[in-house]
Write a protein that binds this DNA or RNA. Structure first.
Lengths: 335, 335
DNA sequence: CGCAATAATGACTTCGAATGCAATAATGAT
DNA sequence: ATCATTATTGCATTCGAAGTCATTATTGCG
């Protein structure tokens, strides 16, 4: 019978005729308890519907068993999947996710307050932008952090990231096969670190490849911005041979706009590549050539790294870069 | 200067020359503290980098300030958006989200254990299937629950749900305009409550409308299952006049399959409707006629309801049904 | 200026489990 | 059977903030 009032270890102890310490020991793994006591306690506990109070445990052990996951609202379409993976993999390690959503830099101080007060064991930040000053705060509070999909070169931070350079290079190699005369680079927003990185890498690689006619436009990662940017570009310019989009969603927008309003045929009139490998990039109507991020491995790496630093707070910062897979779709002109 | 070791209210009290109680009062809103004391405490607290320990607070106040959000892995594409909304709106009410992902019925007992031990203030379940026996457990533990997008007729449960009946009726009205000779209903998986509800409503309404030739196929809510179901159907049957899909994702699959492998023209040869109003349903290549779920309002309702029941545990169960908006796309034949 | 009413303060207890330590029981060796 | 080990057990304390209550400082008002 489950009682109405909360059952504590003292209640169970009384019922089982043992001390509160005994009850506590039964519910902690690996402690010395005789089989007899264990049975008495378990019987009483089950009868009374007792569950140890995690809050009290956290207070005394100074381990909350919670990991703060910060999701920027700018997070890309993959993040739900990432989030679900994170939650699952942490659950397997007996930790839970305390979720925080970050809208803008405004809420940052407030968010940090929350994180300190909740004494989380660690933090995973999904594509959020932190000044290194913020990172230093984590250091001070001795809370391990892993930045997901953000490379902070030279910074003392744990990062897990998809290899943008290698991915974009593969995409450009695909595009180069048909010798495009000119390139349009459709970047994500200027205040996104990932967007900036992808754009700069693309520009620098294009230069290496000897591409001369390269233009840049800025979208905001959304479908509509893909459409708008292309429309705006075509007002004053001819159809570009190749469009490099900083994510798949914009690539989809570009393709729809091209077909819908400008009668441009993909890939013969114009090649388009994306990045991320979101589900819809593979849909028949788009079939985008893109780089698929190795989500599961990225998450796995992030979590391993975090746990390592939780268990061993002095281990040095680490960066892991994983390689994405080139998905050959049907959005790039073949020769 | 932020000290390395954790700063407690006692440390601040000593530094500020006041009692620990005083420090506590300063950090609780609306308590009687003189300006002088407040200043002394705040100065010391800031200098030492003190933040109240939320864990200790939870223990004494018996309010964790956390709401468990259970996301079924079967959750539809909207859920990231929902989750983000939930997190934001709860944050505004000074509560945080403890995230749990539910893979299958297997993990359910374990999940419940977690929920009891963490003493959450309430639970929001996104599209998860709970037996009423499970719901009773929440009752026993006195933890308020709100079921999102799940209608449990007759059950003593708080539910927030989109009006499926009204939405599907509107969709059928759209379809009826071109007098389809036959209908194909593409249902979601049999073990999904929402899928079953949508299918049964569609069938019952079609009967009311006098439709005679109605067939049912079962998919799993995925793009690929939309494609597969249509392909399989067309092996032995002629092109249906109208396809009612239980969600937008399958509708997209159906459209792609029709165009790609069967040279069926949408909407002239075949009308397709979806449900949910996911982002991609509005993309130019699909432009599905669908019902857009009022996400923000649904979430708002769910949270209001939950908070009401947290504050007033004896308020009776409530069900709110919100109406979705008909999106007239371009996937239904006009006369 | 005096007294009542109110505001501010600190000492002490509480929440519920975990743990160091000392006491006791069980086991083994001789 | 005796003593040394080792395994169990319970007592008392701890974690850090919040709240109760009695005490002291302030304020208002006649």
């Amino acid at each position: 019978m489950t009682r109405n009032k909360k059952v504590t270890s003292y209640d169970v102890a009384r019922e089982a005729g043992v001390s509160q310490s005994a009850v506590s020991r039964v519910f902690r793994p690996g402690l010395s308890v005789s089989q007899k006591t264990r049975d008495k306690v378990m019987t009483a506990a089950n009868a009374m519907g007792y569950r140890p109070n995690a809050i009290a445990r956290m207070l005394i052990t100074k381990q909350s068993g919670m990991v703060a996951v910060i999701v920027s609202s700018r997070a890309n379409v993959n993040y739900p999947e990432v989030l679900s993976q994170v939650s699952k993999q942490l659950a397997a390690r007996n930790k839970r996710v305390l979720l925080f959503t970050l809208d803008d830099a405004e809420g940052l101080d407030d968010l940090f307050e929350q994180i300190w007060t909740f004494q989380v064991d660690g933090v995973i930040a999904l594509a959020a932008h932190f000044e290194s000053e913020k990172l230093a705060q984590f250091e001070q509070h001795k809370i391990p952090v892993v930045l997901y999909n953000r490379n902070v070169p030279g910074a003392m931070a744990n990062t897990v990231c998809c290899n943008h350079e290698q991915g974009i290079k593969q995409l450009i190699l695909e595009l180069e096969q048909s010798n495009p005369k000119n390139y349009l680079v459709l970047s994500g927003p200027k205040d996104s670190d990932v967007a900036n990185e992808r754009r700069e890498i693309a520009l620098s690689l294009l230069k290496q490849f000897g591409a001369k006619d390269v233009s840049v436009l800025f979208g905001d990662y959304s479908y509509q911005s893909g459409r708008d940017c292309l429309a705006q570009w075509l007002e004053k310019n001819p159809t570009p041979d190749a469009v490099i989009c900083s994510n798949d969603t914009m690539a989809i927008g570009v393709i729809d706009e091209a077909r819908d309003n400008h009668n441009i045929h993909i890939p013969n009139d114009m090649s388009v590549v994306g990045f991320d490998g979101i589900t819809s990039s593979a849909w028949k109507s788009y079939q985008i050539t893109t780089i698929k991020q190795p989500l599961e491995q990225l998450v796995k790496a992030a979590i391993e790294m975090l746990l390592e630093h939780i268990e061993n707070p002095d281990s040095p910062p680490e960066s892991r870069v994983l390689t994405g897979a080139l998905i050959k779709g049907n959005s790039v002109k073949r020769i």
